[in-house]
Write a protein that binds this DNA or RNA. Structure first.
Lengths: 211, 211, 211, 211
DNA sequence: CATGAATGAGTCTTCATTCAT
DNA sequence: GATGAATGAAGACTCATTCAT
């Protein structure tokens, strides 16, 4: 619903322009409230207030709180997934080392790019079908990664499915830690390297040299 | 909180024994309700009912809902941490490979040992200071691991702090995935191996051979 | 209200024709929504949507929801009243038995003729001044009946007022029952006969033979 | 639920006494609010306020508004049904005329006995499954009446089922009219006689002399 | 100490109505 | 005139917490 509104709106007739602005404002407000107050206090009223619209308007675009949260989460996940997919697409046929680098790097960067949102949304994960959404997007990304791994120029993988799911989930742990603690740029860079190391060394370990 | 209560009751007179039983019942009930109904519907009334006591009694032991949840979470984290610490203690002076194996294995096993609890508690993490508790316990475990790594018989580590935090958080990602999806015992074993691989290969990569 | 609008538009210029069509559509939509969703969920928005017009337009014709409902109810009551009145007019001077037959029959038939509407509107009765409207129309019908009874060829009535009000209200009970239960055509015919019997026997009982 | 609470409470322990009082207060308040404000404005908040308790208490005894209204309606219907049944039981074996008199009389008296309640509840009929409740109780009463009619000392009935349902519903129409208009005691008495006449003449008409 | 009835602030959600376009 | 986005008051319902018994 909301995705549709956002996705397709090449022509913004005056009326729709207002709507789009409202929806946008609500999305942003949701993240702000989430960050400032926490999931528990992220009420529809507060979101609407922060967005500068009435509750009624909020409900015009989202059937209920659950869907609002899910929509915001989904949007974020989609952005991250797309970033990773773009990076993977550009790395087909390269070495496994480069692939590991790309996986860890693009994921980390995408998340860091919207730190606020990422952090705010962790709380939404466990409820509102958030877990399911994450699973869905993770599967989608894992598939992309698996496809890429099969094109490695120097190594051959068995069980690409499992392997890609494991790298992905392994990476997200440290990333989360980085996001939540406010680490110094320096330490952040160090950790970035470690995460890449984690990915590359694991990938090498579970693959065989291809002649 | 609850730990405190327990800690302060070395002598169990009949009356105190009852208290302990009640506290125990409440803890268990909390997890059950959490599992069955979700954090949102995990109300003090429901927990008390399930535990077979009155709400009033519940409030005798926990000043409020927040503390109840925190106590349950803390207890779980403590169990896991202790398991990992025990395992680490028994692996001082061994090879890095064995250490990686032990870290991943003990953590995974401890979590799997009380799957229900682990899964139920994920939702509590983001609220009620759960994140902080987790951070605290993770730091404690990371420290234990760091100490162990320094005793490695075959390898030398720089930045043990960072390394141990990274392994730990890297491991928890896949573990969580295993817990949430109900995977077949077979796949579970496969993943277990992969997680161990992940840990050992990373540890080798970030260390140097010690002469 | 709506009746007024209709009354005042003998000439139907193209524009007014559209208005009439719109009003008609709204009336029908109201009954449909009432039937499908119940009074509580019969909102102006839903009615407008069903009628294929905007809420704004609906408010062009009816100042508020209350009036809309009242108008629909009034229209229905008027139809029934007119049917009964026509039947009565054609029965002046006949026997009391025929009169009872006509009262019960015409009322029942008029109601059955638009079962949907009748049933849907029961819920409107108790609110929106519905009760008052009903009272008003019932009085009007009772008066018509009273006038007819006085022309009976074979019987003489005292208290025609009371008598006609009693028949009328007595008849409506069973009719309603027929409307609400979905009875078989067979049983329906049986009940029809009984209702007629009810009316005729009562009328005979409360009247005296006229010499 | 509520019926149960009321029905069985031979021993009123202190604690229950409070509950019973609360429930009673809520029931009364409901009728008062219904009378004073109408179904539409009969909100749970208002009822609670009028009853001098908190909304929370109301919801302790009734799961939702619907059930509250249904409970009040049911209680009233039960009272009326019982009155009619008692009267019928005492009239087995008598003449049909006496039976008609008893049916109409007891029904009318029972309703008049709690005019306020009766009137207030008409609005509840059409919603909240009220219609169904009424149908249920009417069926119960009709059955009682049917059984009685079969014992008539002077007349034989075919289709007792239909007959008793028709009398019952026929009677309720005028009764309602009496309740809603505030008629003079005099007219009320007149109408009472007419209703009885209605019942008796119909019963005679649909039966045959038994030898 | 245990109990569980009572409280009422705080949620989500709906809907009649208005008014800028 | 038509439209439908925006409004916000109001309602149903929940639940952490207290306290008289």
């Amino acid at each position: 619903m909301e995705t549709v509104l956002l996705a397709l709106s090449p022509r913004k007739t005056p009326i729709q322009a207002r709507s789009v602005a409202t929806v946008e404002a609500i999305q942003i407000a949701t993240i702000q409230v989430l960050t400032a107050e926490g999931l528990g206090r992220c009420t529809t009223t507060r979101v609407a207030e922060r967005a500068g619209v009435s509750v009624g308007s909020l409900y015009q675009y989202y059937p209920n709180r659950r869907c609002l949260l899910a929509a915001v989460l989904e949007r974020h996940l989609a952005l991250v997934a797309e970033a990773v997919e773009r990076a993977c697409a550009a790395t087909h046929g390269r070495t496994t080392r480069e692939m590991g680098r790309v996986i860890a790097g693009s994921y980390l960067d995408a998340k860091l790019h919207e730190v606020e949102t990422s952090t705010a949304l962790y709380s939404v994960l466990e409820e509102h079908g958030g877990a399911q959404l994450v699973k869905q997007f993770r599967t989608r990304m894992a598939r992309t990664i698996a496809r890429m791994l099969l094109t490695s120029s120097d190594r051959r993988f068995d069980e690409v499915e499992t392997v890609s799911e494991v790298v992905l989930s392994a990476i997200s742990g440290p990333i989360r830690a980085v996001l939540e603690k406010s680490v110094s740029p320096n330490l952040r860079r160090t950790i970035r390297e470690h995460v890449i190391l984690l990915a590359t060394s694991y990938l090498r370990e579970v693959s065989k040299k291809s002649t």
